[in-house]
Simulated assay, not measured.
Amino acid sequence: MAKTAILVCAGTALAAIAAPSSASASANSRPQSPNRVVVDCFFHAQVRPASFLIACADGNNYLSNLRWSQWGPDAATATGQDVVNDCKPYCAAGKFHSYPAQIRLDRARQWNGKSREWQYGRLTVNYPGARPADTPQTMTYNLWS
């Protein structure tokens, strides 16, 4: 009786140990979809960033208060603020103004030869209301890689 109980306990323990490792092995052998990222000015991959610098050279245009409603394989969408320097009378003396904006990232492509990360290649900013002077309602930017 005792020998049977010991064998049953040992078998149960081995099954408990083996189950997680075999489950993780099958999960690891299954192909996973690549991560989607947006690459910032410093070539860092970001997922659902709270802010994003558009004008890398001088910092005169950036997105802030981003709230992402979608982050998928084909596109990412958010709402937030487009903060733009009016550069009047020149950029160093200009003032920053915020405009409500709808953001879309799309055109994902493999980033820097890394198979697990694909970067969104295009950024679209749509202004549902007020927008910077001399700016169309929708602006599209090809993002760097």
Rank of each mutant, 00 (worst) to 15 (best):
K3E: 06
A5L: 07
I6S: 02
I6P: 00
A10E: 00
A10N: 00
G11C: 02
T12N: 03
A13Y: 06
I17S: 01
A18W: 12
A18C: 09
A18D: 07
A25C: 04
S29N: 14
R30Q: 15
R30P: 00
P31E: 13
P31C: 07
P34S: 12
N35V: 01
N35L: 06
V37P: 02
V38K: 01
V39T: 04
D40M: 03
F43R: 13
A45Q: 10
A45H: 03
A45L: 04
A45N: 10
A45C: 06
R48K: 15
P49D: 06
A50C: 01
A50Q: 11
D58K: 11
D58R: 12
G59M: 02
G59L: 04
G59P: 01
G59A: 08
N65P: 05
L66V: 04
R67V: 13
R67G: 07
S69L: 03
P73M: 13
P73Y: 08
A75M: 09
T77K: 06
T77C: 04
A78I: 09
A78N: 03
G80C: 12
D82M: 05
D86A: 11
D86I: 07
C87N: 11
C87K: 07
K88Y: 12
K95Q: 14
K95N: 14
K95R: 14
H97A: 13
S98Y: 08
Y99R: 00
Y99W: 09
Y99N: 08
P100C: 09
L105I: 08
L105M: 08
L105F: 15
D106A: 09
A108C: 10
R109W: 10
R109E: 14
R109A: 15
Q110F: 09
W111N: 03
N112S: 14
N112Q: 14
K114M: 15
K114H: 15
S115K: 10
R116I: 13
R116C: 10
E117G: 03
E117W: 08
Q119L: 11
Y120R: 11
Y120W: 04
G121Q: 10
G121L: 09
R122F: 00
R122P: 00
L123R: 00
T124R: 11
Y127S: 01
P132F: 11
D134A: 14
D134Q: 14
T135M: 07
T140W: 01
Y141I: 08
Y141C: 02
Y141R: 02
N142W: 06
N142L: 14
L143Q: 03
S145N: 15
